[in-house]
Design a protein around this nucleic acid. Structure first.
Lengths: 106, 106
DNA sequence: CGTGTAAGGAATTCTGACACG
DNA sequence: CGTGTAAGGAATTCTGACACG
């Protein structure tokens, strides 16, 4: 577990119409949150936006915040805070002595 | 693990152009394998095909077989065979005594 | 600030068919 | 059998703007 799992969750392959259906948001809203730097879809060569499942979860989270009256500006700084915390989680966990013994006894 | 994991792999959300890019197949080929009953995309209300990541893996597998000269007919029966084996795997694994003890000692 | 909408154009996708072999 | 292609139409997506508040 952790950040990258080589999974499908982060592959940007979903176009905006499908994102609209999955999130219940309007395309206007989805594009607006991009101008507010809250989501970052890829672009196909011809300029079509492509989103990941992770993006969809983020959009739903954004929508929930907006409903509560939170501004996009605040949502962005909250996301940045979370990003900083994630980086800390990535620091390798030190193995406990007992676990090391369990691993290496043969 | 097993069949359904509530994951993103089976969500049919990818349109054919993206599938073309991900598989390297032509749209003609992708649609043809559908008429041969090898892949089963969903359809949006307006009739647009939507594929899952699982479909993409299946398509790649199909392409490999075709390259080896295998006919779609044979590929289909091979897929059906695999399907039957999958059903067997789903039979719940009987717990080994020691494991049961480990689980229930409190 | 966040979102709706009409506008015009460009890119995507669909189906049925003709072709080759 | 498996795949390419041209054809015409329908659905999708894009951008920049006006609007409201």
């Amino acid at each position: 577990m952790g950040v990258q799992e080589g999974n499908y969750k982060d592959k940007k392959v979903i176009s905006i119409g499908t994102v609209r259906e999955l999130t219940g948001l309007s395309e206007r809203q989805i594009r607006y949150y991009e101008t507010r730097k809250l989501v970052f879809p890829h672009r196909s060569k011809s300029g079509i936006r492509k989103y990941s499942f992770q993006d969809i979860e983020t959009l739903i989270e954004i929508a929930n915040h907006i409903e509560e009256g939170v501004w996009t500006r605040e949502i962005r700084s909250e996301f940045k805070k979370k990003e900083r915390m994630k980086l800390n989680e990535e620091v390798p966990v030190t193995l406990i002595k007992g676990q090391i013994n369990a691993h290496f006894k043969m």
